[in-house]
Amino acid sequence: MSCIYSTLLFVSNQAHRYNRTPVLTFDQPLYWKALTIIQNEHPNSQLKSVVLRLGAFHTEMSFLGCIGHIMRSSGLQEILELIYAPNAVTHMLSGKAVARAIRGHMLVDTALHSLLVSKIFNFDFPADENEEGNINVSVDDILSKAADVYTELLEGTLSISSACDSAVLQSIKETIHRPLEEMKKNRTSKLWLQYTEMMQILRQFIKAERTGDWELHLKKC
């Protein structure tokens, strides 16, 4: 505790010296101890200005555990057990096996989005990878334009911001938005759509950590 207190005091003094807000990141055990120290300090203490952050890894663990708790008895566990062993799934849903949990959740999220796109755009995915799906002309046109945007993005002839603002992506968003709002009227659909939103938060958090995007990190924490 004395080492943590000394660290808090040193960082706080340095931040005060340069007129900056002290921000410290700790892993879970040290975070809890540092938080206890700050909470027990006098209201006028300089340590009260310290902003504590839980480390990214333990933040992910906590968030994955929350997802597992919210999605309990929803069928998610049974879906994941099609890929992973039952004991592994138990750890994944508790937020322990982070790497496996992230991959498993992303696979489920991808499958959900595939089903949503199939339903909204009214086309069937092929049963075999060598078969062609049943896609109507209007959808085929949208997908072709989206594929062109993707190709230009890979070739570097189109910036990421321009791709995100492209008319075809805006059209796809608008087409998807209306049916999703209708689906949210059903409690089961709303739960699974909430799950996809949590996956988006997780993706953005991982992106923020890996790219050092502080503003994005603050939005997703």
Rank of each mutant, 00 (worst) to 15 (best):
V11I: 14
N13W: 02
R20I: 00
T21P: 00
D27S: 13
D27Y: 09
D27M: 09
K33Y: 04
L35T: 07
I38W: 01
H42P: 00
K48M: 08
K48Q: 14
V51A: 04
V51C: 12
L52F: 01
L54M: 13
A56I: 06
R72S: 13
L76K: 04
E78Y: 07
I83Y: 09
A88W: 01
V89T: 08
S94M: 13
A97V: 03
A97G: 04
A99D: 15
G104H: 01
G104P: 04
H105P: 03
L112D: 04
L115H: 02
F121S: 04
F123N: 08
N130I: 08
E132H: 14
G133Y: 02
N136F: 02
N136A: 05
V137F: 10
D140A: 15
L143R: 14
A147F: 11
L153Y: 02
L153S: 02
E155D: 10
L169E: 02
E181Y: 02
E181N: 14
K184F: 00
K185R: 11
K185D: 03
S189R: 06
L193Q: 03
L193D: 01
L202Y: 00
R203G: 08
F205D: 04
I206A: 04
A208Y: 06
G212I: 00
L216N: 11
L218V: 07
K220M: 15
